[in-house]
């Protein structure tokens, strides 16, 4: 028996909007720790890891670890039917091939049940090693989204370079080149507006912009985003989900042969 009640149902709506274009089908894993997902895009270039900790749910019952295969497009369609202020409850019986989403309006005057078929998905969980990153950049998530969108109108790839001067995003395309430098800026009114650069070593890596633009669909989940970079390792683009967990996107770099 599984029963997860999330008072801030909009979080789950936003999570689905953030991942549904990157990943088609995925297993949601439910354990005492929380509700999680790990999945790669179809070309195995990017990986998404989601964790919503059990403590973040108003009610969290998961009698045994279960894995529920879902089509994320279909799940997003169902969650779109929940109001932004609705409380969302996920329910599944042991051995069942369906999951039920229950949406309750805040005043309890409207209650909806949506039942979705589960699917069998062969998923291989990857071990993500702990890594020491050469540089960690925290910046406003809206600023990062703006940079990715702007650069993708010029080129297909972005070179992210972190030096003591700041973090530089560069691209080139048929019509020309673009460089955007963000310097550390901690003298702002609100901490979430700061750009903070922790650098152990300078690092420069090349990535496909279209994946970054997909990751920025998670922008509504968090005011800030953290980029963790190390030479010849996938970048980690992390959006913290307040009081609940995180959504992390890993993107493999482009490397010269």
């Amino acid at each position: 028996m599984l029963e997860l009640r999330l008072v801030q149902g909009s979080l789950l709506k936003k999570v689905l909007e953030a991942v549904k274009d990157l990943v088609n089908d995925a297993n949601f894993d439910c354990s005492a720790t929380g509700f999680s997902l790990q999945a790669m895009d179809s070309s195995h270039v990017a990986l998404v890891a989601l964790l919503l900790r059990s403590e973040g749910f108003e009610h969290y019952r998961c009698d045994r670890n279960i894995s529920m295969g879902m089509n994320l497009g279909n799940m997003a369609k169902m969650l779109k039917c929940a109001g932004n202020d609705d409380i969302i409850t996920l329910k599944a019986d042991d051995g069942s091939d369906v999951v039920t989403f229950m949406f309750e309006s805040p005043t309890q005057d409207k209650i909806a049940d949506f039942e979705m078929k589960l699917m069998d998905i062969d998923s291989e969980h990857l071990g993500i090693p702990e890594a020491e990153y050469h540089a960690i950049v925290r910046m406003p998530s809206s600023e990062f989204a703006r940079i990715c969108k702007d650069l993708s109108s010029i080129g297909d790839t972005v070179v992210i370079s972190v030096t003591k001067e700041g973090v530089k995003f560069s691209t080139r395309g048929d019509i020309g080149t673009a460089n955007i430098v963000c310097r550390q800026n901690t003298t702002v009114d609100k901490p979430e507006e700061a750009t903070v650069i922790e650098m152990n070593e300078p690092v420069s890596l090349t990535f496909a912009l279209r994946y970054f633009n997909s990751f920025t669909k998670a922008t509504p989940l968090s005011n800030t985003v953290t980029l963790s970079l190390s030479s010849e390792l996938p970048v980690v683009v992390e959006y913290k989900i307040a009081e609940m967990g995180y959504i992390r996107f890993y993107l493999a770099p482009k490397i010269e042969d």
């Binding site: 195995h44 270039v45 291989e124 969980h125 071990g127 790839t157 996938p234 493999a252 490397i255």
Partner: peptide, 14 residues
């Protein structure tokens, strides 16, 4: 020319 790597080149199966 930079070649796109796959995630599986960095992270092994559990």
């Amino acid at each position: 020319v930079n070649q796109q790597r796959q995630i599986t080149a960095f992270f092994g199966k559990k």
